[in-house]
Design a binder for these strands. Structure first.
Length: 335
DNA sequence: AAGAAGCGCAACCGCAGCAAG
DNA sequence: CCTTGCTGCGGTTGCGCTTCT
């Protein structure tokens, strides 16, 4: 007997999310925090499966997501980390906290892979006589099995862990660490608590699109209210939204993060007595108390010790000391 | 101007890991 | 220890937009 699907296939909506659905989801998460995704569709009346809700949140709605073009630095980080970690997009994403694993994966598949292939082709053509550069590195990569690399990583991580713990005990307000560090070392990062506002930016963005180009979905959804088996929760949200389009405009125009946060909280606070302080109570130093990884900040993250270690490690492997200029061709297939 | 091809991105699917019972 | 259910991850797909012919 196979395992039943994560959600009933009947009546589950697929395809792009509508602004209403986003608002319902964000409002719900704002109230209950992320996690327990199984309960989200039931409690919100969303006709989405739990996975879809989680995906939508983590890839689009959660706080601190930067969208748009990747910077040169980000690009090089991805290339380097991909060479080190392989296609572990979640791990790579933890070093680029403003980017989602999906984004990074997409960027890799659409841009970087081609770029590297091109570079690879170039290198092979350029070094036709001495196949040392690429072939030696590929031989090197063959000789280094994945297991060996992983063992090495694990071994060195202990050193890095010690260094990081020392650093943190010395300076609690020191450099912000990335989520992977948190996971690995079980350290709570020192962060501000008002990070949720950035998800209002995401919402604002989609509302902006919505207002600019009112879709059929929105009217459809509003009119289909009676047919949708929504809970009072989602009905209230939708009503609130439909009756207060101005509120969303105000949300968009709020320039300061704090103002946006407050505006957004009051925007949907008609449905509950949930206040900003209560919401912040769901955070503990920037992490949701359920231990989810949505503790990512919108602040620029400096290199953590582990990142530095990774970079130093690469440098120690004879890559000119600067991973930005390293020969990526050989390292791409290390794993 | 119209169709074809390419590209980018959001979302889905299936599997693996993990925890609880 | 085994089973079950939930969550997270990586691979893949499909659709809409842009560019090319």
């Amino acid at each position: 007997m196979g395992r039943p699907p994560c959600c009933d296939k009947i009546g589950v909506k697929k395809g792009p999310w509508t602004p209403e659905e986003d608002i319902i989801l964000v409002s719900y998460i704002q109230e209950h925090g992320p996690g327990n995704w199984r309960a989200v569709p039931t409690n919100t009346g969303l006709l989405r499966c739990s996975k879809s809700c989680r995906l939508r949140w983590t890839n689009y709605l959660r706080p601190g997501i930067k969208r748009g073009n990747f910077t040169e630095h980000e690009e090089k980080m991805i290339i380097h980390l991909q060479a080190l970690l392989g296609n572990r997009w979640a791990a790579i994403a933890s070093y680029l906290p403003e980017r989602t694993d999906n984004d990074i994966k997409n960027y890799w598949n659409t841009h970087l892979k081609k770029k590297l292939e091109k570079q690879n082709h170039h290198t092979q053509n350029g070094n036709h006589n001495n196949s040392s550069s690429s072939s030696s590195s590929s031989e090197h990569s063959k000789s280094n099995s994945k297991g060996q690399w992983e063992r090495r990583l694990q071994t060195d991580i202990h050193t890095a862990k010690q260094a990081l713990c020392d650093a943190l005990s010395l300076d609690k307000s020191g450099p912000t660490i990335s989520p992977i560090d948190t996971k690995l070392f079980n350290v709570v990062p020192q962060v501000q608590t008002s990070t949720y506002a950035s998800s209002t930016e995401n919402i604002a963005r989609l509302l902006e699109k919505w207002i600019k180009k009112p879709s059929n979905d929105s009217s459809q959804s509003a009119s289909s209210e009676s047919t949708t088996p929504s809970t009072s929760f989602s009905n209230n949200i939708i009503n609130n939204n439909n009756n207060n389009k101005n509120a969303s405009v105000g949300l968009i125009s709020s320039p300061s993060e704090g103002a946006v946060s407050t505006t957004f909280l009051s925007f949907n606070s008609t449905n509950s007595d949930f206040t900003q302080s209560e919401y912040e109570g769901k955070f503990e130093n920037g992490i949701f108390r359920d231990g989810s990884k949505d503790n990512i900040l919108e602040t620029q993250m400096p290199f953590s010790l582990l990142e530095k270690w990774l970079l130093d490690d690469a440098a120690a492997q004879g890559q000119d000391g600067d991973f930005m200029d390293m020969d990526l061709v050989g390292t791409a297939d290390l794993f």
